[in-house]
Design a binder for these strands. Structure first.
Lengths: 135, 135
DNA sequence: GTAATCCTTCCCATGATGGTAAGGTCAAGG
DNA sequence: CCTTGACCTTACCATCATGGGAAGGATTAC
């Protein structure tokens, strides 16, 4: 299987497959007879799917490196994996809270903005720091 | 006021102040006698605070450019500002939903992982795509 | 006058991804 | 056997906002 086929089979773009190889997330695969083309088998596709799924779940490439190691360590403790997942959950919660705060603040401002042709605008007033309390 | 003082007065790092000038978000400020140092006054600090606040609310530098133009246009329609804010709110909501989905998926997996010394781990099973339905 | 602190510009790095360009390889069909 | 088109290769650049550092000039305090 060439890289293009591996890409569509795994959901990871050819570009990214080469990149993951370059940074050492996956080891270099075999090449074809002339050594020109990368050749992928079922095991490699499996790896790539793993990576793809982990990316979708929000893990960074570095974290995926750790997960891959654990995946291949038959004696791993499930606690090690769970710890990584829980750190990620905590990070997600922080990020979500930040975005929620932004959303709330913006919605509050937008709710008080006429949104018509008049120039008066509480949103800009807030950004400019000239807000009079409009509660 | 030199750039360092402007930085602490506005909450925007000196590095970023120069960057914003470089990309044209703010216009070049006056220089001191020898022309070596940038000099900031109250108006510039006000601008920088505006930028800082808008960044905190999640606006990109490009969007802030638009907001700054509107801010300085006395005849702007508040609808124009509100539209930008609402687009940003919508984008935030999409991002939040994505992160929430990740968090949910991870929490579901983590809840089913023993988290002990045994190697059996539903999290890795899921990533590997070998999950047997454990509902 | 000297030392310390600040400022300047320029270059590099981040993280994960996409784009492009120049060129090599392979498979199918004539 | 040769051409053509599809695919692959590497190498470089761009993104977005930010920080780091180096080399050197300006200013300020003593």
């Amino acid at each position: 299987m060439n890289i293009g086929e591996a890409a569509s089979a795994s959901g990871v773009s050819a570009k990214m497959i080469r990149y993951y190889e370059e940074i050492g997330l996956i080891s270099p695969v075999q090449r074809n007879g002339s050594g020109a083309y990368r050749v992928y088998g079922a095991a490699e596709i499996h790896h790539l799917r793993f990576i793809r799924r982990a990316r979708d779940l929000g893990f960074s490439v570095q974290e995926i490196g750790a997960l891959l190691k654990l995946w291949q360590d038959r004696n791993r403790a499930s606690a090690d994996v769970k710890a990584i997942a829980q750190e990620k959950i905590a990070a997600l919660e922080i990020k979500i809270a930040e975005l929620e705060a932004m959303r709330k603040a913006l919605q509050h401002l937008a709710a008080h903005c006429h949104g018509d042709l008049r120039p008066d605008c509480p949103i800009l007033d807030d950004l400019a720091g000239t807000t009079r309390d409009f509660h």
